[in-house]
Nucleic acid binder design. Structure first.
Length: 219
DNA sequence: ATCCCGAGGG
DNA sequence: CCCTCTGGAT
């Protein structure tokens, strides 16, 4: 997703590419419920107009809204980006903060966004649990699906810290490109031999819930 | 019609 | 736990 990772793991297709922590943070905020393609479409103009937290803090919310309209949730995102920029200026001396606790004080920045920024802008390992993890959990009948923090801790137990950022990126990529909810590309999936729903195709929430339930009954 | 590389609020 | 916010893709 980001330059350092693109270089280190060339087989993972990375589509957002920002070295600057602030621009990375804003891009990840924009990527919620939105494709990378769309984010990459709006960021050049956005950062040409407001390239750092100082400029973004002085922006009119309406102008940010216009620049990011096509990314969805644009009113909330625009407001959050302005406030978050103001907070970076007033609370963090103009620098994107480098800890989880500080990052999640920013509006629009939760655990997932914070961990992505920590991993890619600061090299601090973290497990990034997104909705793909949940979907994968469903496919495997894991019942922790509704608690991302539990999944985060469980994965952290299993994987060496040095691989957390790499694994997270690969999982996100896997969910996006292979294990998506509509027509999962099971033929291209390295986990197909392990997956109890291999070849079932479409997995909606109703089916998934039934599967988890029957799995519980079985135990 | 239904979901999406979330987050925040009730 | 539930709901809302948004446009776009399928």
């Amino acid at each position: 997703m980001y330059r350092t990772l693109t270089k280190r793991y060339p087989d993972v297709r990375c589509e957002l590419d920002f070295q600057d922590p602030f621009q990375l943070l804003v891009a990840v905020v924009l990527s919620a419920q939105c494709t990378d393609k769309r984010v990459n479409q709006v960021t050049p103009a956005l950062f040409r107009r407001f390239k750092n937290p100082k400029a973004m803090a002085g922006a009119k919310v309406l102008e940010i809204e216009e620049l990011i309209r096509s990314t969805g949730f644009f009113r909330i995102k625009a407001k959050n980006i302005k406030i978050l920029s103001e907070m970076i200026m007033s609370n963090f001396a103009g620098q994107v903060p480098g800890t989880l606790e500080e990052l999640i004080t920013l509006p629009g920045v939760g655990r997932k966004t914070a961990n992505v920024v920590l991993g890619h802008a600061f090299g601090i390992p973290g497990i990034t649990v997104d909705t793909h993890f949940g979907r994968l959990s469903r496919r495997f009948g894991w019942t922790e699906e509704n608690d991302p923090v539990k999944v985060e801790f469980a994965v952290a137990e299993l994987i060496p810290q040095s691989e957390w950022t790499n694994l997270s990126q690969r999982m996100i990529w896997h969910g996006r490109r292979i294990c998506h909810s509509r027509k999962p590309a099971c033929g291209a999936c390295p986990l197909s031999t392990l997956c109890p729903s291999y070849g079932m195709g479409e997995m909606d929430k109703v089916k998934a819930l039934a599967m988890v339930k029957s799995d519980e009954d079985f135990r």
